[in-house]
Design a protein around this nucleic acid. Sequence first.
DNA 1: GATCTGGCTATGGATAACGCAAGTCAGACC
DNA 2: GGTCTGACTTGCGTTATCCATAGCCAGATC
Lengths: 156, 156
Amino acid sequence: MSVQVAGVLAERGDRALGDRCPLERTLGLVGNRTALLLIREAFYGATRFDQLWQRVGVTEAVAAQRLRGLVAAGVLEKQPYQEPGQRTRHEYVLTPAGHDLTPVVLGLLQWGAIHAPDDGGVAMTHVGCGAEVRAAVRCAAGHDVAESEVLVATRK
Amino acid sequence: MSVQVAGVLAERGDRALGDRCPLERTLGLVGNRTALLLIREAFYGATRFDQLWQRVGVTEAVAAQRLRGLVAAGVLEKQPYQEPGQRTRHEYVLTPAGHDLTPVVLGLLQWGAIHAPDDGGVAMTHVGCGAEVRAAVRCAAGHDVAESEVLVATRK
DNA sequence: GATCTGGCTATGGATAACGCAAGTCAGACC
DNA sequence: GGTCTGACTTGCGTTATCCATAGCCAGATC
């Protein structure tokens, strides 16, 4: 059981659609290990360069490179801040576009917790009611949507 | 505004947690370009080896390698099938674990459609009611959950 | 038995991602 | 002016990922 596809996606046969195919560019922006781990840490609340590279466990060089990419992609932005007695520095905070990745990061965390048991799985709960939190697929009318009820079409 | 963290995640300070940190292993399994594109095609309904590598636009060698990984990770499984007058072959179908990646793939498709306009963005609608489909964060009690209302804790 | 086809495997080489180590730079503090 | 620290940058070697090409194998067809 899969989603339903329409338009170019359905008509292409068995050919690739090249680099304008859905996900191609997106994965170029956020679809690598370090970028997703940095986004995870941003979700956890890390903002300073030091925190980010140390918690992710990559070198400063790689962190700097990926952070530049994420800023360019509009996922993070650099904001100046100043602690008393310290000089002005910059912190990396999630933009609205970055926050829109919540279902993705949360979905991956949830998937790992269930299906990759060695992954130091996490438990996520709703602070308000204590119930388990999960990424779900819904429609704007409020229905829970099964995978087979999704129609994917190319935009004009 | 970020999620709330508890337990080891909150106490670790600015150290990395190594390869048992949430997402590390998960991203090793499904967190690379080709794997995610193959999962996308599986969502779209492709099952045969030829379809998969051609639609993704990758060589047979790379596709075979990643498909082995996805089968080993339990995301896909090989099932024998036979078309009349043809010999027995194998197709790759999503396992329940693979289907559990729906919010992730759908979330990435949705993010790309909004924030990466050159990504050949797609429109996703609910077949039942025609409303737009989106990945959302909910709790088991049925509440919509804001990012700041999520408590992430390490499992024991 | 020879051929063909879908589904792979094998080899070699390019590019990208990463780790390690060292260096730069700006401003607070002495 | 000199030192220190957080935030990077630079250079180099290694590993992972990818492409291109070629070859293998099983079974249906001829």
